[in-house]
């Protein structure tokens, strides 16, 4: 494994019965980059992320996360990564404070470390006054920022964000990305999926998945040049439409 790569995927295949969700994926993610993992609904993004996180086994292929093997070292992988899922991130019936403490404890952080870093986190997000509020009672944008902060609370080397920003106002959405940039500056590699094509442009490199395969991978500028497009939205539509015509 190259020292510069934090994710190395070679010939990843995942099948569910007759259906091939991931069809021979090969790609690398470099240390410290913001990597955008794009694709249409049903292209196979979440399936791949679950494998990279050690939540599900591939059917075949070689995958290393920070040098660790996804077949035999899943528990070690889980300790080194953070994961924010689109559907579930925080317990709605626990408070802000309880959620932070719960996830920190799961990652084995010490009591004193949790105490100190929780205070820092609450202060940074400016929600110290609200730390005893239940998650279900706070606005969506708070939830998203808090869920991200919790996902990187144990200082992972790599964090996976699966559609983290839907439904909030444009300023809240940008503040969320500023949190991502802040973490990237501190050396955390970010692996993110999104349906907002302007957010794709915030990434250092992006891949575009169509029907279980990666059809393109480059910097945003590189993709725009290759596909003679004005923005990533055009690139995406060109690539995804070809795939769509096959089955829709």
């Amino acid at each position: 494994m190259s020292d510069n790569n934090i994710i190395e995927v070679r010939n990843l295949v995942k099948k569910f019965g007759d259906f091939t969700a991931n069809d021979n994926l090969s790609f690398d993610v470099r240390k410290g980059e913001i990597f955008g993992f794009l694709g249409a609904n049903g292209a196979g993004k979440t399936t791949a992320i679950r494998i990279l996180c050690g939540l599900s086994f591939p059917s075949s292929g070689e995958i290393k996360i920070d040098g660790l093997d996804v077949y035999t070292q899943r528990e070690l992988i889980k300790r080194r990564i953070g994961y924010m899922s689109q559907k579930f991130s925080l317990y709605e019936d626990l408070t802000i404070f309880e959620n932070i403490r719960f996830f920190a404890a799961i990652y084995g952080m010490s009591r004193s470390e949790i105490k100190q870093r929780t205070a820092e986190l609450l202060d940074r997000l400016n929600i110290t006054h609200a730390k005893n509020r239940l998650i279900r009672d706070i606005p969506l944008g708070w939830k998203q920022k808090l869920a991200f902060s919790v996902a990187v609370f144990h200082n992972p080397v790599l964090v996976f964000l699966d559609e983290p920003t839907g439904g909030v106002d444009p300023i809240t959405r940008r503040q969320f990305w500023e949190l991502i940039y802040e973490s990237a500056l501190q050396g955390i590699t970010v692996f993110v999926t999104t349906h907002y094509m302007d957010e794709a442009e915030y990434c250092d490199r992006i891949s575009i998945m169509v029907d279980g395969r990666i059809e393109a991978l480059d910097s945003p500028d590189g993709l725009k040049n290759t596909y003679k497009a004005n923005d990533i939205n055009e690139v995406f539509i060109k690539l995804a439409r070809e795939g769509n015509n096959n089955h829709d």
């Binding site: 202060d123 940074r124 997000l125 400016n126 929600i127 006054h129 609200a130 606005p139 969506l140 944008g141 708070w142 920022k145 909030v168 106002d169 444009p170 300023i171 809240t172 503040q175 500023e178 949190l179």
Partner: peptide, 21 residues
């Protein structure tokens, strides 16, 4: 549109008490 929306918001999040320092 998005610039306009953000300007009409007064440059502040609609969820005002959560401002990242």
């Amino acid at each position: 549109i998005e610039d306009t929306f953000m300007e009409l918001m007064g440059g502040k999040t609609s969820e005002s008490s959560l401002i990242v320092k």
